[in-house]
Design a protein around this nucleic acid. Structure first.
Lengths: 240, 240
DNA sequence: CAACGTTCGATCGTTCAACAATCCGGCGTA
DNA sequence: TACGCCGGATTGTTGAACGATCGAACGTTG
């Protein structure tokens, strides 16, 4: 084993030693706080307060803000600073338009149907069923997200995965808008209503995928998403 | 006309007075230079030289770099600076995977088929035919880009338009890789070969769209893109 | 009292200068 | 030739500064 084997094995671990810049860490942190709802939509993010809170320079912070603005998680208004995005109902509609195209397309074009990618779908469905049985509807929500990410992952395309991740992040913003507008706490009964019916529909689609019936899964997903959009949009219209 | 009419008419013009920050302008400028090939793939962009050339601060420049890195037009390596991206053949394949999903999906889900959106497709096709007749194959290339943008525009979704714009920008990088690797100038005969056959195929698809045969147009587009990918990938493989 | 002009503090946009960390190439040594 | 080391150059990050702009409070005027 003179050379080639070493380098190949080590080259595979190259990703492990990628150091991260401060900007990246700040961006990741803020993104997390935003999509988890700890920074609710509409929150004004003053540069100085954030700088003091995070202990970084203002310039570093501005780079992170710029990035998150590009991801549509923050809105950037000249001389007025940044605030957490508050998706409009038009945004929700657009989000679902894109979602239909990406998810349905990814399932229909699912390339090589690698074993691990298919099992990831099944795993997400099972996690959702378990969480539903436990009555943990918040956990059902995240499992649902993972299910859709796994579905899109079938296309085995890094760019599609990225697009889907950004899409779901923005969609979470929409959910937070409903949870925080007007009344304070989020109604657990309402989130239950959102996810309840989808647990079994997820199962159905996952089974179709496992059986290689991609076209059937795609069309099922199509109506699935149309229903979800309608449900979300009516809920959106209720609180304005 | 006491009030309401004024404000409505003025509110429509609100977009005209959006001022642009320096970072935005620098970003737009650099993006343009990159996709036009004036900054060929692989070019190292030193911060100080760029700062001196553009007459902006280093921090401002770094924000622009960060943005373009997020768009995958620049690669950012810690402590090594940024350079114009050089898409690999794997990138090209991924790009086309995404392209198939977005374009085909957009055509198939073409929502309201607004008059202006359909005519935009026809216009791009005609511009391509005209340029082909004139033998201006570079112009044929840009018309081709506009054709695909118009196709995707049928979905009438800002996010899909953005995604497509970024996708095409990255794809241009791939073309520049072929044009600049090894030998210097780009071979006009080769670019002619790339676009020649697609002029009439564009026309066919556009006619199908105009006749409302969206499904037929979508399937035609599917094979169209598969052919284009194969052609580009073999050309890519030739020069390595 | 309602509409308008002014002032002022706070915040943002941008620049500049500094320093540590890191990279890269060259040089000497074994 | 391979290795270790050093120094210049570039990047990463910070801190401070200054003008520009915003928003709200205040006073003025009709």
């Amino acid at each position: 084993m003179t050379s080639a084997q070493w380098v190949d094995r080590l080259a595979a671990d190259r990703s492990l030693l990628e150091r991260t810049s401060t900007v990246e860490r700040v961006t990741d942190l803020l993104r997390q706080r935003i999509i988890q709802g700890e920074l609710p939509p509409g929150t004004q993010l003053s540069e100085v307060s954030a700088k003091d809170a995070l202990g970084v320079s203002r310039n570093t912070l501005r780079e992170a803000f710029r990035l998150l603005g590009h991801e549509r998680l923050l809105v950037h208004e000249m001389h007025k600073g940044v605030s957490v995005r508050k998706p409009s109902s038009a945004d929700v509609a657009d989000l679902y338009r894109l979602r239909r195209i990406i998810e349905v397309g990814a399932v229909r074009h699912a390339a090589t149907t690698k074993r691990e990618l298919v099992t990831a779908v099944a795993r997400a469905v099972r996690a959702g069923e378990q969480a539903a049985a436990d009555g943990d509807w918040s956990e059902v929500g995240t499992a649902n997200m993972r299910f859709h990410e796994a579905l899109v992952g079938l296309a085995d395309s890094p760019r599609i995965n990225d697009a889907m991740a950004g899409l779901l992040a923005e969609l979470r913003l929409a959910f937070h808008v409903m949870s925080t507008d007007e009344r304070g706490g989020l109604d657990p009964e309402r989130t239950r209503g959102f996810y309840e019916s989808y647990v079994e529909r997820n199962r159905a689609i996952a089974d179709q995928v496992a059986d290689g019936e991609l076209d059937a899964a795609a069309t099922a997903l199509e109506t699935y998403l149309a229903d979800a959009e309608a449900q979300l949009l009516t809920a959106y219209a209720e609180r304005t």
